[in-house]
């Protein structure tokens, strides 16, 4: 007969130690350096750093209308993308759970494809679809629907399409997980009591789906908030997001302290989003 070995605090510490050391080395230390760097400054006209502590980078972010505008655009764009993903994912996830049958695995596989193949290739594919000479404009022109090309790139429309395409799986998967756990009887019971389909959705299904909705929304919001490749390529330099500003400062201007401050502000908003998500989840747990 197999016996489970005793797990003492020492054993636990030893087992955790390699991962903890690794995390400390590759995540905590660089993160702390990022925080410190954000309080340094670039010597004007030089690649050297002035290591005296200053709030100048944060003052610049929160007093310059351009950076505030970039922050605002990033936040509302992330919220908008989350909402669109939710509206698309709710019926899709429910259909996959209830009606896909044997094709369920295949459909889940297809829906997570954008996550597997990375951001670059699908985004470049979207450029071909959305450009003034792309498939969509070409098809609409050949059908006589439009005379000149619709601007689908270099604006919020294009970036939203790209981000929704990229992050829809992050909403679909938690919803599938939640919907699978909702007994079909609840829906039938509600309908037998005279509830219309709309009322069933509003009063029965949506409240039961809330944990999945919160989890999915949090994932999509955070992913959209930090997205770089898609806004950079589909926005064509005209849609300013915090990630693209941070990239420009870090890789092109080489003002690392300012880029670090932009990164820290972005992380603070991620933490805030996580906190809101946790509070909602806790309230839902209490309610249930």
């Amino acid at each position: 007969m197999n016996q489970t070995p005793d797990i003492t605090p020492t054993t636990t510490t030893l087992l955790i130690a390699p991962a903890a050391v690794l995390m400390f080395g590759v995540f905590v230390l660089p993160f702390l350096f990022l925080v410190v760097l954000s309080f340094w400054s670039q010597v004007p006209g030089s690649l050297s750093l002035d290591t005296s502590l200053t709030l100048a980078n944060y003052v610049r972010i929160f007093t310059d209308s351009y950076y505030l505008g970039g922050l605002w655009t990033t936040l509302w764009l992330s919220g908008f993308v989350t909402l669109i993903c939710l509206l698309l994912a709710l019926p899709l996830a429910r259909w996959i759970v209830l009606h896909a049958g044997r094709a369920k695995g295949l459909l889940i596989g297809i829906s997570i494809l954008p996550l597997i193949c990375g951001a670059l290739l699908p985004t470049l594919g979207l450029v071909n679809l959305l450009s003034p000479l792309g498939f969509i404009n070409g098809a609409l022109k050949s059908m006589g629907v439009i005379q000149s090309s619709l601007p689908l790139l270099g604006n919020i429309t294009g970036v939203t399409i790209g981000l929704v395409q990229a992050f829809l799986p992050l909403m679909v998967l938690p919803l599938i997980n939640t919907i699978e756990r909702i007994p079909r009887d609840y829906e039938k019971a509600a309908m037998s009591l005279g509830a219309s389909p709309l009322v069933v959705w509003r009063r029965v299904l949506l409240p039961l789906m809330l944990p999945g909705i919160v989890a999915g929304s949090l994932l999509v919001f955070c992913a959209a908030l930090t997205a770089f490749v898609t806004p950079q390529i589909l926005g064509q330099g005209k849609v300013v997001t915090f990630a693209s500003l941070a990239y420009q400062q870090a890789a092109m201007v080489l003002d690392w302290p300012f880029a670090s401050a932009l990164g820290i502000v972005m992380l603070l908003f991620l933490a805030l989003a996580g906190l809101v998500g946790a509070l909602i989840s806790r309230r839902l747990a209490r309610g249930s």
Partner: peptide, 12 residues
């Protein structure tokens, strides 16, 4: 190159 940071802001 000495104007890089300032000019980048202005370009944006």
């Amino acid at each position: 190159i000495a104007q890089r940071s300032d000019w980048t802001d202005r370009w944006n």
